[in-house]
């Protein structure tokens, strides 16, 4: 970092002031989360707050073996497949939408504002609406029907906005070159567009998975009689007063971190391979 050394003497007070705000914000962001990860390893005698009375896996045991929650494993067995389905649909639908939105078409303005409306509409209101709609038309609400749709209404706007940003930097000349070289539309999509956009699509997949996996308000009235993980957590906040709830937090966040790590790692790998320096090869 020769560059920062060169001008290191020109760092003024705004750097230190803003840097302090940044550090404080990061502490504020992660501090509480770290606290509950620590507290989830509380000894059997420990309570909901510090100090730690020993270190144990007691509360994880309580959570999983003793069934402190209604049905954690059942909730996971729904939440994870649901998140995977939402992820796949979000990637496909956002990619198609991003391709379409590169040119104006009749109704594109309306659809765009509908996307924004879907993003900012109060989640619980949509949840009520979808629940009522299913009742009115005589369908049962279920995680793989009503909850799936409700979650898509939340993940698609994110997916689409990311796609817009990606396509803002994607030159149409790649597609023209592909066409020029004799590829048909399917080949152009599969051999050129998708591979080039892959890092962005992984980012969309990351949003699709995590936003679905953690979605709460829109799922609440749409998942029917069976719960997803966030709703299990919610019901625990209402009636569990032991560190088990922290254990659940640690577990579910751990899973999120694995997904985030894999996604970001994959993106970094692709980018590094693609932008690899000349020097690196010689």
């Amino acid at each position: 970092m020769a560059q920062s050394k060169l001008s290191a003497d020109r760092r003024g007070w705004p750097f230190y002031a803003l840097g302090a705000v940044f550090v404080a914000y990061v502490v504020f962001l992660y501090g509480p989360m770290v606290c509950i990860y620590l507290l989830s390893f509380q000894g059997p005698q420990g309570g909901l707050s510090f100090p730690m009375r020993g270190v144990s896996l007691h509360w994880f045991d309580q959570l999983i073996e003793q069934g402190d929650t209604g049905d954690l494993m059942g909730a996971l067995s729904r939440s994870i497949p649901l998140a995977l389905i939402v992820m796949a649909l979000t990637v496909l639908i956002s990619l198609a939408g991003g391709l379409a939105f590169r040119s104006r078409f009749p109704g594109s303005g309306t659809l765009f504002y509908l996307v924004i409306a879907s993003l900012v509409a109060p989640g619980y209101v949509l949840s009520i609406g979808i629940g009522l709609m299913f009742q009115m038309f005589g369908f049962e609400t279920n995680w793989y029907t009503s909850a799936l749709g409700a979650q898509l209404s939340w993940t698609l706007p994110f997916g689409l906005l990311i796609m817009f940003a990606i396509f803002g930097r994607f030159s149409r000349s790649y597609e023209e070159a592909s066409r020029d070289l004799g590829a048909n539309q399917l080949q152009t999509m599969w051999l050129v567009v998708v591979p080039i956009l892959l890092p962005g699509m992984i980012a969309v997949a990351l949003f699709g998975f995590t936003l679905s996996y953690d979605e709460f308000a829109r799922t609440l009235q749409t998942t029917g009689s069976t719960n997803t993980v966030p709703i299990e957590i919610w019901s625990m906040t209402q009636n569990v007063t032991s560190p088990s709830i922290y254990a659940l937090g640690t577990l579910t966040t751990g899973l999120s971190f694995v997904v985030i790590g894999v996604s970001l790692g994959a993106i970094a790998l692709i980018q590094r391979r693609r932008l690899g320096s000349v020097a690196g090869q010689e």
């Binding site: 639908i93 956002s94 594109s108 509908l114 509409a121 209101v125 009520i128 898509l152 209404s153 698609l156």
Partner: peptide, 21 residues
């Protein structure tokens, strides 16, 4: 054709539910 799935999801899971409300 590309935008149809998006439009359908938003219609069925945003527009209609709000109309139902």
């Amino acid at each position: 054709a590309l935008v149809l799935p998006l439009a359908l999801v938003l219609l069925v899971f945003v527009v209609v539910p709000l109309a139902v409300v």
